[in-house]
Design a protein around this nucleic acid. Structure first.
Length: 419
RNA sequence: GUGACCGUAGCUCAAUGGUAGAGUCCCAGAUUGUGAUUCUGGUUGUUGCGGGUUCGAGCCCCGUCGGUCACCCCA
């Protein structure tokens, strides 16, 4: 039996690496005062038809359940979040700072950095319309990536503003109904040829020169981004962002400020992306409630690739993983006749909270030390003929002492104190 | 969904159309109570799968499944 395409087994090492990412996401989000929430993995398909539109609907893992409901595995969090907020908005003080680390499903052809199943950190800030909220979210995003050992040399946040383009277009006579079509041309600007873009722009009475000129000197339409940059400069984080108006993003619901994160080497896909969606909650609540909101998503697949590529980030991760797996104490049974005493010690150590391991089957002492080494143990306790005395050995320092077994716990604890 | 390339041991890879191999990993040993290195021995394949051509196919042809990359889009 082979795996379904785009799905993963997590063997212990993979699982530890995944958990490292999830744990770091949670730690940094909480550092910024965000609280965790979650929702169902399965939703009625209408939830996504109503909002996501276009691409995402075509990528749904959907089916009809036994109650003949048409359902879909969640491909993103924002619709669920909007529903949750709309349902109990009055129970929470504003602004809401919520995050979650859900597993998502999208029926796409898999490639590097893109699977059919993945984890994604979602951070959303709801109920605050000011630019300071935009800056706060960007600071969180930047610190999040820095927590993985990534630096200014490794990634860049490209920030943009859809409103700047909307004003630009309206000032030049583009009708309001055609704004989304116009944004789609800008979205493809970097990937399409100049001729191709020119042909599309002609429909709006514009030329590539108009676009190039605006990109070079945006004018007052981009003032919002300037105050954003000032905020980040005060935090010393301005080196991580770049103004790039070619960022527009595909999703239809973004209303203003938008951004994407890329690795500097450009060898991976986008690491994260997000922006403002000030009208979405209103749409999801059928007009009953209107709250400004913004958020971003960061997937585990591209991030894991980048961590693997950047030595500093890789070494941080490996350190974390090794520490997760390491045993504190390994009990070496040097004399089979002392097995009952050894099991007693083993149990005492475990009840004291130490990660303690031993060889299940009788084995030579040398082999048991090999196992202790392999388990990353800090200490070995040798139990044998000298009972009731035992030997306590610090494996890395290769220092051994003989003590009475009743003194074991007091002798152990200073050696295992975390530095 | 479209196109190009790829598919050999758990992993990394060899094998002019002529008996499928190496390294690594794993396991067991090297004068009966201490970790490394080393040495010795051992296990592993319907060559992704199914057809076809041929005296003979890992190799050539077709299909299929899976992977990689590009398009598309995004995490």
């Amino acid at each position: 039996m082979q795996l379904l395409p785009g799905f993963r087994d997590f063997f212990p090492e993979d699982c530890a690496q995944r958990n490292y990412i999830l744990a770091t996401w949670r730690e940094v989000a909480r550092r910024y005062g965000f609280v965790e929430y979650d929702g169902p993995v399965l939703e009625p398909i209408e939830l996504y038809r109503k909002k996501s539109g276009g691409e995402l609907v075509g990528q749904l893992f959907d089916f009809v359940d036994k109650g003949e409901r048409h359902v879909a595995m969640r491909p993103e969090m924002t619709p669920t979040l909007a529903r949750m907020v709309a349902a109990r908005e009055r129970d929470f003080k504003k602004p809401l700072k919520w995050f979650c680390v859900p597993q998502f499903f999208r029926y796409e052809k898999q490639q590097r950095g893109r699977l059919r199943e993945f984890y994604q950190l979602n951070c959303d800030l709801i109920g605050e319309a000011s630019a300071s909220a935009d800056a706060e979210l960007l600071a969180l995003l930047i610190d999040m990536l820095r927590a993985f050992g990534l630096s200014q040399q490794d990634f860049v946040v490209r920030v943009s503003d859809r409103n700047a383009w909307c004003q630009f277009a309206l000032n030049r006579g583009v009708s309001e109904e055609r704004l989304l079509d116009f944004l789609a041309v800008i979205d493809k600007w970097e990937r399409a040829s100049r001729e191709e873009s020119g042909r599309r722009l002609a429909e709006f009475g514009l030329t590539p020169e108009d676009i190039e000129q605006f990109l070079a000197s945006p004018g007052p339409e981009a003032d919002h981004l300037k105050s954003l940059a000032a905020d980040l400069k005060a935090r010393g984080l301005d080196g991580y962002i770049e103004l790039d108006l070619t960022i527009v993003r595909g999703l239809a619901y973004y209303t203003g400020f938008v951004f994407e994160v890329f690795d500097r080497a450009k060898s991976e896909r986008a690491l994260a992306g997000g922006g403002r969606y000030d009208r979405l909650i209103e749409l999801m609540s059928d007009g009953k409630l209107s709250l400004p909101a913004l958020g971003f998503g960061m997937g585990d697949v591209v991030l894991a690739n980048l961590i693997q590529d950047i030595p500093a980030a890789k070494s941080l991760r490996d350190q974390w993983v090794a520490q997760q797996h390491a045993a504190d104490v390994f009990v070496v049974l040097a004399d089979e006749n002392r097995r009952p005493e050894a099991l007693g010690i083993l149990q005492t150590l475990r009840e004291a909270g130490y990660r303690t391991d031993y060889a299940l089957a009788p084995a030579k002492v040398g082999k048991q030390f090999q196992q202790a080494e392999h388990r990353g143990a800090t200490l070995a306790v040798v139990i044998g003929q000298e009972w009731p005395a035992v030997k306590l050995k610090h494996l890395a320092r290769r220092e051994e002492s003989t003590i009475d077994q009743t003194e074991l716990l007091t002798a152990l604890s200073p050696l295992l104190a975390k530095s």
